[in-house]
Structures are given as structure tokens and as C-alpha cells.
Computed example of a mutant assay.
Amino acid sequence: MSSEKIGQARTIEGFGEVMGAASQGERPNHRPYEPQTGDTFITSWAKSGTTLMQQMFHQLRTGADGGDMQFDDISRVVPWDDTAYLLDFDMNSEQPAAPRGFKSHREYERLPRRMRYVVTVRDPKETFVSFYRFIDGWHLERGAVSMEEFMPLWMSGGPGGCDYFTHLLSWYDRRREPDSLVMTYRWAVTHKPAAIRALAQLCEIELTPEIEALVMQRTTREFMHEHKDKFDDGMICRVLDEKCGIPAASDSSKVQSSGSSADALPGSVAQAIDALWSERVEPATGHADFASLAAEVDAIHGAG
């Protein structure tokens, strides 16, 4: 039986076949998301800090009870609607604490209105390298697809997502809206106490010094890497193992021991991203590159 399973992909087209195979079969437990007042969407673009913000949010809302690390997968307690059918998951199952939180990679226009939105934005070249490191050796056989060939997959933005530039422009337009907390990923990491306070304020969570200290400690790279099995899409791993024959032990960890640098990007890919920025982002924002845009977004929050 296992010999008939598709296994890791060797091409971009094969990636689509893997995901198609993973979606086969009955889904008796699946129920799609039903909005409730006060829901919070953590909706950064792929590889832009979504997992960090899921963890920050979850530890904040459980902090009064000492925090919670009993989950097997962060996306079980802060679930992801765009993978719920794949996982046969009930999106309306009870969450460990209020407010309810959900993961997404969507732009504002495709999310329910009158909710709360948390977004960290990141240099597109860094997201490319991080996305490639994430998929290479998991869905894709390691080294089978080069970075130069990876562009179509990067542009997809992950399940339910959109391309990087659509997402960035959508949330840039909402950077000062009271229902939206839009930060750069780098600012959220380097000014973490301020990011924690801003998130607590958005979600109307009472923040004590004890809770802040707990959230600070549990969102360090060291702590999350120590517990990386909780941040490695374990539920998706199990489906890919069962449906596709991709071993659950494949490297799917979202928490790397070191960050991704744009220096690893081939010149042709960097030039293609720069061209897209010049075509789509600069005319809409006046910013010639991500560093300029990031400086404006960072200035909204100040020095922390």
C-alpha cells in the first residue's frame, strides 16, 4: 500500500500533486470557520513571523493561568482555516482561552470584517529564503528544486494565501487602523516587550509584569527551538505521511536554530523580486525598497 503513495515531490508541479493527494478522502469532522465577535486573526504572509505571533498570542491569553504549552501543534490551539479541510478539523472547536485566535496568510479583503488583525511584515527576499528552507526536504525532495525554480511556489503564499505584494499592500493600507496591529517582523523581535504590550492592548488582555515576563521567555528563539515539535505543522505532517507517504519525521520545523538571510538568494531571483517591487509597491507607497517601507511602519510604534 505504501509503495503506491506519491512521496516527496521533485518538481513544482509535483508539489501540486502531493497536495491534491493529501486532500483525498472523507472529512467527517470538518466544519468551516464561523465568525464570532472578538476573534483575532494572525495573518502575516508566509514565513514572516506567523508562528511567533501565534505563540505570543496564545501565551498572552493563557498567561493568567501560567501559560499553556500542553498543545501538540500551535495550529491546533490557534487554528488555520485554509488547512482545516485537509486536516479534517473543526474550526469551531473550543479553544483553551479567550479571545479566539486564528492563523491566516490572507490579505484584509478576504477576511471577515470587524475582527482584530495582527500582521508582521518581512523583507520579501528573506521570506523567499525562509520559505525555500521550509519546503525543501519536506514536501519537496531535498535539492530537487533550485531556488531559481522556486519562484512560482513562493508567489503562492502558502495555503489560502495570496502573492507577497498583494498581501503587503493590503495591510500597509491598514497600518494605522485601530483594529489592525501591523508591525515589521524585525521590530516585533527586537522590541518584543512593546510588541507584547501592543498585542495585549489590541486583544483587551490584562497584562501584568508576570505575564509579560512569561510571554517574553516563551517567545525566544531558544525556547521555541527547544519545543520545535510544537511548531512544525505536526497535524499536516501526519496527513502527508498517511495520504502521501512523506515521513512525518521529514524536516518541517518552522523554528530554525538561525534566521534566514537574503544573502543566500541567487542574483536572478533578487532581481526578479526587485522588479516586482518597483512595479507594484513603489507606485502605491512611494517606498523604493522594503527598508524604506519598514522604517515608516516601525516609526508608528516608536522605539518601544
Rank of each mutant, 00 (worst) to 15 (best):
W171D: 06
P112N: 08
E141F: 09
M151T: 13
T166L: 03
R122P: 10
R176S: 14
P112M: 09
I135T: 12
L168W: 01
P159G: 06
R174Q: 15
S170W: 01
P152A: 05
T120W: 06
G160L: 02
V145D: 05
R133Q: 12
L111W: 06
Y132D: 00
F165E: 11
C162R: 13
R133V: 06
L140E: 00
H139D: 07
G157W: 12
V129T: 13
P152F: 09
S170Q: 03
R174M: 12
V121D: 01
E149V: 07
R176W: 02
F165H: 13
L140C: 10
P159D: 06
P152L: 03
R142A: 15
F150G: 07
E141D: 14
H167Q: 05
L153E: 06
Y164I: 04
L153T: 09
W154C: 07
Y164A: 01
F150N: 04
V118R: 06
R142M: 05
R110D: 15
P112Y: 00
D136G: 04
F150M: 04
V121T: 14
R113N: 08
F128M: 01
E126W: 12
P152D: 05
L153W: 07
T127Q: 08
Y117L: 10
I135E: 05
R116Q: 11
R116V: 03
P124W: 10
S156N: 12
E126P: 07
G157D: 10
H167R: 04
E126C: 13
V145Y: 06
F165D: 10
I135Y: 05
P112S: 10
R110C: 06
D123G: 11
M155C: 05
R113V: 07
E148T: 13
G160H: 08
M147P: 08
K125N: 10
L169S: 07
R176I: 06
V118Y: 00
F150D: 02
F165R: 06
F165V: 14
Y132T: 01
D123T: 02
R175H: 11
G157C: 07
H139E: 10
E126Q: 14
L153M: 11
G161R: 11
L168R: 04
R174D: 00
F131M: 09
W154D: 05
R113A: 15
D136H: 03
R175F: 04
P159T: 07
D173F: 05
S146D: 12
H139N: 05
G157F: 12
I135G: 00
R114C: 10
M151F: 14
S146Q: 12
R175S: 07
L140G: 04
P159F: 08
E126A: 15
E149D: 15
M155W: 11
G143W: 10
W154V: 09
T127G: 04
R133D: 12
R176V: 11
E149F: 09
T166A: 14
G160F: 00
D136M: 02
G137F: 02
F150H: 04
F134E: 00
S170D: 02
E126N: 14
E148F: 04
G137Y: 06
Y117F: 08
V119K: 00
D136V: 00
H167D: 08
M151E: 11
E141W: 05
P124R: 02
A144D: 07
